[in-house]
Design a protein around this nucleic acid. Sequence first.
DNA 1: GTTGTCTGCCCC
DNA 2: ATTCTGC
DNA 3: GCAGAATGGGCAGACAAC
Length: 578
Amino acid sequence: MRLECGMSESGDSFQLFAGVCDACRATASKLEKSHILATYLRDVPRESLGIAVRFLAAQAFPPSSNRTLGVGGALVVESVRTVLNIDRTTLNHAFRAAGEIGEGISELWSLPGTNSLTLPLIQAGFDRIEAVGAQDAKRAVVIDLLRACSNREAVYLLKIILGDMRIGVSEGMVETAIAEAFESPLTEVRAARLLVGDLDAVAALAFERRLGEARFRPFNPLGYMLAQPTMTAAGAIDVLAKREAIAEDKYDGIRAQLHVRAGRVELFSRGSGTVTGSFPDIVQPLAKSDAAFVLDGEIVPMRIAADGAQITLPFSSLQKRLGRKTLTPRMLREAPCVYVAFDCLFDGADLLIDKPLRVRRERLAAIAAQHRSIVLGPQVPITNADALDAAFVAARNRRNEGLVIKQLDSLYTPGRRGDAWLKLKSHLPTLDVVVIGAERGHGKRRDVLSDVTFAVRRDDSDELVTLGKAYSGLTDVEIAALTERFTKETLEERGRYRIVRPSVVLEIAFDQITRSERHNSGYALRFPRIVRIREDKKPSDIDTLARVEQIYKSPDNLAVALDDAPPPDDVNQLSLFS
DNA sequence: GTTGTCTGCCCC
DNA sequence: ATTCTGC
DNA sequence: GCAGAATGGGCAGACAAC
């Protein structure tokens, strides 16, 4: 391997880091990327190793630290404009051509750089960006850093700030490289990461050949076990192949790990940050507990009737709490949340992930019995397809998405999507829509019109009203063909957006329909995806707004709360403050 | 003071 | 979240 | 089978425009 990085590179120079990234970018081979990274990591000074692995994964801070830069595209663009003293149009053009901001500045960057930036210096800059609150101050720090950057340094500085490397290296590749660099089995590196969380901690252990000593401790979130989707009950039964299993509801909430020990309580969401502050109704009743445990479960907005019956509220009511600075008693009353626990990962001093589910459930039941904000969901044994169907209907009646089916003898395998957990969701009907607008994508899709805006017809008229945008579901070949067609059928260009002649009919699947101001139909789709191009249909054959409204109001659309709700005062005596 | 828009940041 | 693609 | 890349809607908060 050859790295063009100048002569007097010390192991922690940022120029060297940029060179390594470029070398990875230049090859598609994962093995080669690993070699390049491993060679680099072996020579990075010990005190900079943590920063190196973090930056390679485009992380400015350890993910579990809950620290963020608070710098995004706009602020970066303004900083670049100041440093290069160029107009917005030129910049935008470069970004569009490159498909991203980071690589886009490369062709404009003429500064030689001071050849003095090191990994710790960049990290110190990030610390400062976080510490100074105001946007102006953040921008000043970014500008300072940029002025010291050479061309490639600037590119990768921006990529780290924006949190996206796009060189075929992410956390998984970095783990592979750590394993290779320090001659440890990849499985051991992965296992250690699940236990200790952040990459820098894993790298430190690997460096010292102490991966085997990685131990789980509460308040370091474990990885999450994921469920494999299945389309039908019969299919799920087949997969189970007579192994003992239970089904529980699949909730539309926030997957979270609840860590409790010695009066400290944290709720970790899947992004590894904490959402503790948003859910005092869950956390406060636990604050006096002297127990130590870690549970897996879901934060769910829920009404619990006096008889214990559970009705889940729409996800939007939960979302209103996130990121809020102050929560009013009224908000807590109108969208009460509970923690529906479904697994116990740690209890007392015992890590339980290598115990079968039936054992973990016993420990969970004992813990839940003692804490009123920890709720257990209904759980039924699954022996045949009929039992599964019945459970599914019951789950839907509780306003939940469907079921998760779990083998009782399975272990908790974080980060893997295996057969041990299966998810079975119901599906709303699909819609046939027509494309009326298209845009170029980013990155490798920068030259194709991959991003389409689609519409349905307002009833009894020819008017088309937009319902959403979609991108996924089409193959590269299909996108290429559509790009050609949209180019020919462009009616008008409005900046990056082009209005196209309504001609392409798509079948769109989605999870929910919500009311929305974003699109002029007054509705939007949650998780829209393209099922197929309906070559057999003409624009006159598409669905109407009335059809959208009909699906919106159907009982299967979980975005809408049931309106026969009891008054808020009667709700969740269990989980309200006393 | 109110309304509208942009931005970052979460979640799904 | 989902989906496709290359290894 | 895994990892990576590309993309959706929607929220609160900050700030600009009125």
